[in-house]
Amino acid sequence: MSEYILKLENITKSFDDLTVLKHISLEVEKGEFITFLGPSGCGKTTTLRIISGLLEPDSGSVILHGQDVTALPPEKRNVNTVFQSYALFPHMTVEANVGYGLKLKKVPKAEISKRVSEILELVQLAGFEKRMPDELSGGQQQRVAIARALANGPEVLLLDEPLGALDLQLRRQMQLELKRLQKKLGITFIYITHDQEEAINMSDRIVVMDKGIFQQVGTPDEVYNHPKNEFVARFVGNANIIPMEDGTSLAIRTENILLDVPGGIPAVVMEKSFAGGLMRIMLRTAEGTEVVATRHGIDYAAEVGQMLTFGWEPQNAVAVEKE
């Protein structure tokens, strides 16, 4: 399984004076589900557009299936995209939308309509062929966008925050469906999101991006439990970063912060809030470091302004590099 379907080699891209991607390189295996995770503006959509061919990099190359496609226009690449806003053609039926790519490939009409209904069945939209996009719900439009991108039989499917516009419940359901679809079809998925839960649930590997750089590339377990630097620890694990006296930093996740530890670090309670079954207690040390601790339930009795001490078990602390 070490066949690389996609290789990014030393890619750089700037818009005007702004460098959006700084020398990024990546190898993606066939059938892999890989997620680009990062805050908005980190360069993940730019990377996707460079892979699809809608943008040309300033330097570096895109290798698809062993062939350098850097100079090829999007229509010559066997890669398709599910766009963030779906980008369904409003003047075409669902059938024409999904069959658009096949029609361009001059596939016979009878076969197009057969393939389209197969794919619509796959995304659970059988019977929607004659509907117009504006007659569909957001979730249904999403499925049409996925079906349309799959219809051409791409080697790599690019998904640009495809679930961003859906409500939480539908998003969870679609996450499972997408994962199932990817396993079934064996296509390489390159998925963009800013939601770390989504990335951890779905991916084989996660590329954590910030400021145009790949901060860490690894399995969900690696990026969650062994963050390489402060940014990854904070963005993926919601961890506290505690600076040490020797100049290094420790990342400790909120649930691993122990409170009222004899001989612990003194701090004052700044804020208390309750959400999603978790009590969130924000502390501040004398040096000004802010630390968040979480507890299940609401029975932890600490008042805002109260002094207490906190600490952690050594095995729960991970040494991380500065960004």
Binding site: S52, G53, L54, P73, P74, E75, V79, N80, T81, F83, S85, A87, L88, F89, P90, H91, Y100, G101, L104, K105, R148, A149, N152
Partner: peptide
């Protein structure tokens, strides 16, 4: 016009001209 639709057409295999005649012109 939503120009992302032209991106989508190109992504699905349309040349510049084809994207114009099948998407931009009708819209």
């Amino acid at each position: 016009m939503d120009w992302r639709l032209v991106d989508a057409a190109r992504d699905l295999g349309a040349s510049r001209l084809k994207a114009f005649t099948s998407i931009t012109l009708p819209l």
